[in-house]
Design a protein around this nucleic acid. Structure first.
Lengths: 128, 128
DNA sequence: TCAAGTGTATCGTTCGTCTTAATACAGTTA
DNA sequence: TAACTGTATTAAGACGAACGATACACTTGA
């Protein structure tokens, strides 16, 4: 199901989080589906249950799944994590734009920058 | 000239960097002016010369000043650091907006967000 | 020329935080 | 109630950031 890379310098829980998130985003794990238990997945990956627990906690934080004590972890509906991701990005964008304006960028500067980025993206989309 | 706050959890070199940057931005240190030497400022602040050195290196990286071996550190022309800051912000903004659009935010969503941020900032400016 | 000033590079110690694990606690269900 | 779930606490180890001691390299003026 998942293979960990011990040459990867990132922590184990982060690798697990990322790979599970990918499976959910791609639809390999359907909404409502039951995730493997923390102990079971820990056994499969030869890792401490806490490591899986931390990955699951992060995925819950990001809206990808929800947990029920005594029952297990389950994949959330798609819109859940999309909303979560948007909120996160909005937060970061706000902070960055605040910096930008204190540094002297005008509103128009930023809008022009955004238009530029989006126009390039439109070209890419034509290829998909 | 500068007072360090040891209750502040941020590292000393970061405090020094920030406060010197403020002095430069506000014009208290004029372009072309000679900065105190690393050893001299280190003495004044009762801190290791390396700490000041690191602050100066950061300020040079950000375009606030330039150094000449054997002579000293000097405040850069204003446009130098403005350009540097803008480039940095543009880079971060580009990366973040790319993420935003892959996450489903539309161009209009982002522009609305920016307008919101700027309108709040305008209110603040009226008070200064 | 050389002493005294300047910036810079290297190295080691300390200290905090991050990561992971061991273990115990708590809820659910057949 | 046994066997499964998730969760909380604590400790140990690794790692990196911050700072300082020290030596190196360049410039200037007496």
């Amino acid at each position: 199901m998942i293979v960990l890379d011990y040459r990867d310098k990132r922590p184990l829980y982060e690798q697990v989080t990322e790979k599970l998130a990918h499976l959910i985003i791609r639809g390999a794990l359907a909404p409502g589906e039951k995730m493997p238990s923390v102990r079971q997945l820990a056994l499969e990956l030869s890792v401490n249950p806490n490591t899986i627990q931390r990955a699951y906690a992060q995925l819950e934080q990001d809206g990808y799944l929800y947990s029920v004590v005594g029952k297990g972890n389950f994949v959330s509906e798609t819109f859940e994590w999309k909303i979560g991701k948007l909120k996160e990005l909005k937060k970061e964008l706000t902070a960055l734009i605040s910096q930008a304006q204190t540094a002297g960028m005008t509103k128009e500067d930023i809008i022009a920058l955004i238009s530029d980025i989006y126009s390039r993206a439109d070209h890419k989309e034509e290829l998909t």
